[in-house]
């Protein structure tokens, strides 16, 4: 009887401590914790390839499409390597973009221009610029390393019927186009469901929503659809991801300057 009470008390005490522990961690620590957990849950995917259709729409509702293939290689201890081959529109077919993201410091980027068979190293200072005329900036599409932001947990909120953490993150790089981003992570799987982007004047610039999440290798979640709306211009860009394949056995050789030309 005694032991039972003691055990019960001990349990109560532990849960109290846990609650107290949460209460004691600052919103900054809490935000970082959530970002680390989200990152940890996506670690170990190895590599992936997917087809991507980009639908660019202006405020009059006129749209144009781009199609590309995106390969990703997870690099342990650093940012991912990404290789993008363009297929449509046809005049840019064969153009390719290679990016080595780094946790700290500027990324390395190369562009392949098929008309001249030329590989050109380009500046990665363009991170806040639009990626191929879309509403996605380079920094929105590059791999989201924990170290690229500082964090602050804001509140819990139900978004689209899912319990979420709402976390603000502040880009470390002064070249970023944003003062802050507000991210809705679902508590179940730590997936980003929505991001609000605030421009350098701290005005709401864009909102990105992630739709139709699918799970791969019984672990990694990828949204089939990403919709970015620019509130200031009325333009939008939808990304439609198709044919995700994981575990391709890619190596660094599939992500070097030669591979810009060698595959499509």
């Amino acid at each position: 009887m005694k032991t039972k009470t003691r055990r019960f008390l001990a349990f109560q005490l532990a849960s109290l401590l846990a609650v107290a522990g949460f209460a004691q961690s600052t919103p900054e620590e809490r935000g970082l914790e959530i970002a680390r957990e989200a990152d940890a849950r996506d670690t170990g995917f190895g590599d992936s390839v997917a087809e991507l259709e980009m639908v660019l729409q202006n405020r009059h509702g006129e749209s144009s499409n781009r199609e590309m293939k995106m390969k990703t290689l997870e690099v342990s201890g650093d940012g991912d390597k990404t290789l993008i081959h363009f297929d449509r529109p046809r005049d840019v077919k064969g153009t390719a973009f290679l990016s080595f993201t780094h946790r700290v410091g500027p990324d390395d980027q190369w562009l392949y221009l098929p008309a001249l068979s030329r590989v050109k190293r380009i500046s990665s200072n363009n991170k806040s610029g639009p990626f191929v005329g879309s509403e996605f900036a380079y920094e929105d599409l590059s791999s989201q390393e924990v170290e690229k932001y500082t964090y602050r947990y804001i509140r819990d909120e139900v978004y689209e019927g899912q319990d979420c953490f709402v976390v603000e993150r502040y880009p470390v790089d002064p070249k970023s186009g944003y003062t802050r981003q507000v991210v809705w992570f679902d508590k179940q799987e730590y997936r980003s469901l929505k991001i609000d982007f605030y421009d350098r004047k701290d005005a709401l610039l864009k909102t990105l929503v992630f739709l139709d999440y699918q799970q791969y290798l019984n672990r990694y979640w990828r949204a089939d659809r990403m919709e970015m709306v620019n509130h200031q211009t009325g333009k939008r860009t939808d990304l439609i991801w198709k044919n995700y394949v994981f575990g391709n056995g890619f190596t660094e050789r599939d992500f070097d300057q030669r591979s810009l030309r060698n595959t499509r």
């Binding site: 660019l56 202006n58 144009s64 005049d91 840019v92 610029g129 639009p130 191929v132 005329g133 879309s134």
Partner: peptide, 8 residues
């Protein structure tokens, strides 16, 4: 000059 628009 690069417009970064949908028409490249």
């Amino acid at each position: 000059l690069t417009w970064n628009d949908e028409a490249d």
